[in-house]
Amino acid sequence: MKLAVCIYEGPYNHAASDSAYNFIQAAVQKGHEIKGIFFYHDGVYNVTKLMEPPQDDRHIANRWSALGATGIDIVVCIAAAKRRGIVDDVLVPNVRISGLGQLTMMAIEADRLVVFGD
């Protein structure tokens, strides 16, 4: 089944990013196709390479980047990103900035869209 995931909150402060990640890992292992992951609102902060968490903690941005490297389309909303000072230069590899049209396509084309937020 084609699944899409939308994440509204930034890293560490809220559980949304972790919940979404764990959900997606399970979905991938079950053989579902991830149509896309869309970061909106403060969710755009999840994939900046400027974050440097303590070494004994998970590295949220690198984790998303690694997931992107497997071919999953990870999209950061351009309007939400610009508003918050997030631009291409600060993003980890394997994610891209694009418009809300991408979220629209995910909502229409994915069989299921799951929202993680606060």
Binding site: L3, F23, A26, Q29, H32, V115, G117, D118
Partner: peptide, 19 residues
């Protein structure tokens, strides 16, 4: 349930998140 069960529930249903 666990995350696998969560995925199965999503597969079976349209989801609404009560954020």
């Amino acid at each position: 349930t666990d995350y696998n069960g969560f995925v199965d529930l999503v597969e079976q249903n349209t989801t609404h998140s009560w954020l």
